[in-house]
């Protein structure tokens, strides 16, 4: 039986991925600020703020099984023109999207180094390669995550730990609820996905990348035409 740690499992992509892994026989530890409604005999919910280094370390210490997979999925978004984005919003995005992933990668990464194996998937966004206007602070925080993915992959490869990034266009989650439908449709068309991307398709894409042969460590793949 394999064990995964997923951040942001209280809803959206994190929850959908947790449900798929549980259905396929995995044990899943979910890290979210609120515990959420997902219940399953092999699901353990941890109420943890991933921007709190000590809290993440304590949560990882509670996991006794070897950790095969970490998915840094938890994220927050804010659509604002650069000149209208409060500094506090930029700091908050960096805390969740970059620093939260950094803390999880560091704590779980140490466990994986001890095991000499493991896979880390950082969930990123097409907004980075597209340099999407109106999302400067969000894009910058995810670009930091992409850089972390590449450096971590190089540092952890000798100990058998793979680190990859997987990116999506807009998904139907709380993150995109505030985005005008027309803007989403325009972006989906630009990405070659006129019907948009469903949570189920995003989960399929992640599952496809679990085997080592499907992606080289340090690579960042997108479910989109860029």
């Amino acid at each position: 039986m394999s064990t995964a740690v997923i951040t942001g499992t209280s809803r959206g992509l994190g929850r959908a991925l947790a449900e798929r892994l549980l259905a396929e026989g995995w044990s899943v530890h979910g890290f979210s600020r609120s515990v959420g409604e997902l219940t399953h005999p092999r699901f353990t919910a941890h109420a943890v703020d991933i921007s709190d280094e000590g809290a993440v370390r304590a949560a990882v210490d509670q996991i006794c099984d070897p950790i095969d997979l970490l998915v840094n999925n938890a994220g927050s978004a804010s659509l604002n023109a650069l000149l209208l984005t409060p500094g506090s919003v930029a700091a908050s995005l960096m805390r969740v999207n970059y620093l939260g992933a950094f803390h999880c990668l560091q704590s779980v990464g140490k466990a994986m180094v001890r095991q000499r194996r493991g896979l880390v998937i950082n969930i990123t966004t097409v907004a980075v390669p597209l340099s999407l206007e109106g999302e400067a602070a969000y894009v910058a925080s995810k670009a930091a995550l992409d850089a972390l993915t590449k450096v971590a992959a190089a540092e952890l490869a000798p100990q058998g730990v793979r680190v990859i990034g997987l990116g999506f266009g807009p998904l139907s989650t709380d993150l995109t609820r505030a985005v005008p439908a027309l803007k989403l449709a325009e972006l989906d068309a630009r990405l070659g996905r006129p019907q948009g991307t469903s949570l189920s398709q995003a989960v399929d894409f992640i599952m496809h990348h679990l085997p080592a042969a499907s992606s080289a460590s340090g690579s960042i793949a997108y479910l989109a035409r860029l």
Binding site: R57, A58, K110, V113, Q159
Partner: peptide, 24 residues
């Protein structure tokens, strides 16, 4: 440097098991 990182990761767990304290 890679060997040192591996040693530190392994030792942190050894210390935790020996002392019951989680350390960095």
């Amino acid at each position: 440097s890679i060997g040192l990182v591996t040693l530190m990761a392994d030792l942190e767990e050894d210390v935790r098991l020996a002392s019951g304290v989680s350390v960095q």
